[in-house]
Design a protein around this nucleic acid. Structure first.
Lengths: 195, 195, 195, 195
DNA sequence: GATGAATGAGCGTTCATTCAT
DNA sequence: AATGAATGAACGCTCATTCAT
């Protein structure tokens, strides 16, 4: 009630998570909010703008989540693991949201404001910082931390993607897969040292 | 011109990567091909069938590619690495296929025939076989090879996904990222032994 | 112009009799009304709802007509005859309504609300009441008044149907046919007594 | 097999009876017959022509049926009753067929060949003949036999129509209704004498 | 700040029909 | 006598968006 704009975003997010992107229409959002479809245009230039805002909010949420995970651990290895877990957890808890955040077609993202991209990048920087810290502390050996961060991200993203798209064999337990992936990723970064 | 059916598939595949699945319509395909929308129905029962064919052909191609990679290497470690490289290469070279094959939400492919799913699984089995062979030969230590195969797959899939969706930071060289990811993945499997 | 909703109903009703139900489409209605097809959906949930409304309004009109006829006569025989005449008159004057009301196949009106059926039945009850009254007064002898009411209805419906569908031989005067049918029907009910 | 044209008519009639007019398409007929849709056009100018032929055949069948009923009875009253029963029976046994024969929209019938109308009229003539015979024999009194025949027809048609369109109250037994209607109709003609 | 009415474009699909072979 | 390929028109319906109020 307080703020129509927030209401719209909240409901849109909820619709996205529960019904999926394909069924996210201005009318449906309006119906859920309890206002007219026209009113949405008073707060968002068009559907693209609304979705972009939604994505922004999503990255904001992911960021908060990762930040919390990072702050809970001082030692870099523990921090890295916590970050990986937090990332996967976020994706699994918000599958449709995650899909839009990371798989929305590039063309649809064309007009996505640049500053928003920066926000998205902040997540990576948390990973990178942990890697750099770990390397400084002698726990890891990552000569190109930004690449290593990307590799980690890719692994986590792959796990979430497959799970969200329900592509994982039914005989594989999702939690076990996540556990193994997290182990694999963290050990991978540590492995450099061993050698 | 020669074969309308192939033309339709080609154009549809192209449209898919340039415009995205949400904007893939029978009419658009027809316009791109230069025939009437009705004509498509002479070759495909409906839109679902067309997309499923696309997916099938994609998996066929990926399978061929992986099989070739597997057959070129006898030693399991080399084979595993070759498989990883082949997988990523296929995804990067055929982003159009990759999108339908792995990112199309199951909900949208409701009636995808079961036998086709089996074909998709065959790819994973190649990975798994290499892991099992390597474990038998003492080169790897993977107590749950099917989970390990999934972890590897997820990592490769993550890399391809991010690259295809153009989500990777522009300052990161794509080839370097792939190289690091492949290393990370293969070393990850080998690492088990060290421990 | 005044009221788009009424306009739509009017035009739809007209189209129905001139073109037939099979050719009644939202687009045709829109074209006839002079609005976009989309606009119809602002006033009716879908085509079914539109047709149902048409039927409802039709039954409302028929009911009014029959009620008036019934109230104008105290003696049952006169009332029965008046009802028969009113029924036929309504059908001949509103062929457009009549078609949807009675000739639309139930399969095509799948979701016709039950309460509307009840309204349709009210007409029959007027007939039945007259028959029961006449029997009580000794003017008729109808052991199963609800069946007799149906028989009367069927006769009247047959006359209207044939006339509306233009199936009656051109050499037969429509008024004479109606006259004979009414006579036949009313006498038929009375006949029971004579025997 | 013998004759494609007859095959088409047979299958079309069957489709009409089992699936309904709305679902009667050239393609479906072709599929049922086992030939190409194009082939139908070698035997019928277009769908209208095919349907008209179908109607013709229908009237032929009804005629045969009525003729048999007429020939089985010498006394006019019995003949009239048999005719009424035969008519209703035909309609109830071929509901969709009946619908097309008698309720196809006038516009759709526009190009229905005149000579075919004559065939349709022959049925009425059987009724009329029985009435004339009965009047000559002193059993009936029908000053305008062609009108009386129409009245009878209308009654029978009304019964069939209501039954076929499933408009009869579920609490009314269909057979009882038919019985009462036949009685009513035949007695109606006889009643003239009494007066 | 908010709305109801309205619309053009588009969707997947089916249809009767034509034409070259 | 028969066909496969092809098509334009139409269907019911949903969508994002605009505009006058």
């Amino acid at each position: 009630m307080a703020d129509l704009r927030s209401d719209i975003l909240d409901r849109a997010r909820h619709l996205l998570v529960t019904e999926g992107y394909a069924d996210l229409s201005m009318r449906r959002i309006a119906r859920a909010v309890g206002c007219s479809a026209t009113s949405i245009y008073l707060h968002f230039e068009n559907k693209d703008a609304l979705v972009h805002t939604l994505i922004d909010v999503g990255f904001e949420g992911l960021n908060t989540r990762l930040q919390e995970a990072a702050e809970a651990h001082v030692d870099p290895a523990g921090r890295l693991e916590a970050l990986a877990r937090a990332y996967v957890a976020f994706g699994r808890e918000n599958p449709e949201y995650y899909e839009v955040m990371f798989q929305l077609h590039p063309q649809r993202m064309a007009r996505y404001p640049v500053e928003a991209y920066r926000r998205a990048r902040r997540n990576l920087e948390l990973l990178e910082a942990a890697i750099v810290d770990g390397t400084a502390a002698g726990a890891f050996s990552a000569p190109a931390p930004e690449v290593t961060a990307h590799v980690m991200w890719a692994s986590m993203h792959g796990v979430v993607s497959l799970l969200v798209a329900q592509r994982v064999d039914v005989r594989i337990d999702a939690d076990a897969l996540v556990e193994a992936a997290v182990r694999h990723v963290v050990d991978g970064v540590r492995a450099g040292v061993a050698v």
